[in-house]
Amino acid sequence: MSEHDQHMAELREIVAEVLEVEPEEVADTADFVEEYEADSLRAIEILARIEKKYKVEIPQAELNEMRSLKAVHEVVARYAGWQD
């Protein structure tokens, strides 16, 4: 598994757990709010879990961006210095 795939799999698991769906139900570009009825507190919970797991700090201004798995990956990659 490439580093990119590994990170996507880990993030998918975090998102699925917070949204209480199965990981395979989380499509890469599905909008958390529209598809899974996520509220702002769930977005915060996703952010909190990511910060804890990867020991990164992500500015709260990025919360608005983090509306799909793909977008979450892009934001985290930027702050964690991932090259994928």
Binding site: I44, A48, E51, Q60
Partner: peptide
């Protein structure tokens, strides 16, 4: 107290 994120505490 594990984390405080955007006004939410864990």
């Amino acid at each position: 107290l594990d984390q405080v994120v955007d006004g939410a505490a864990f």
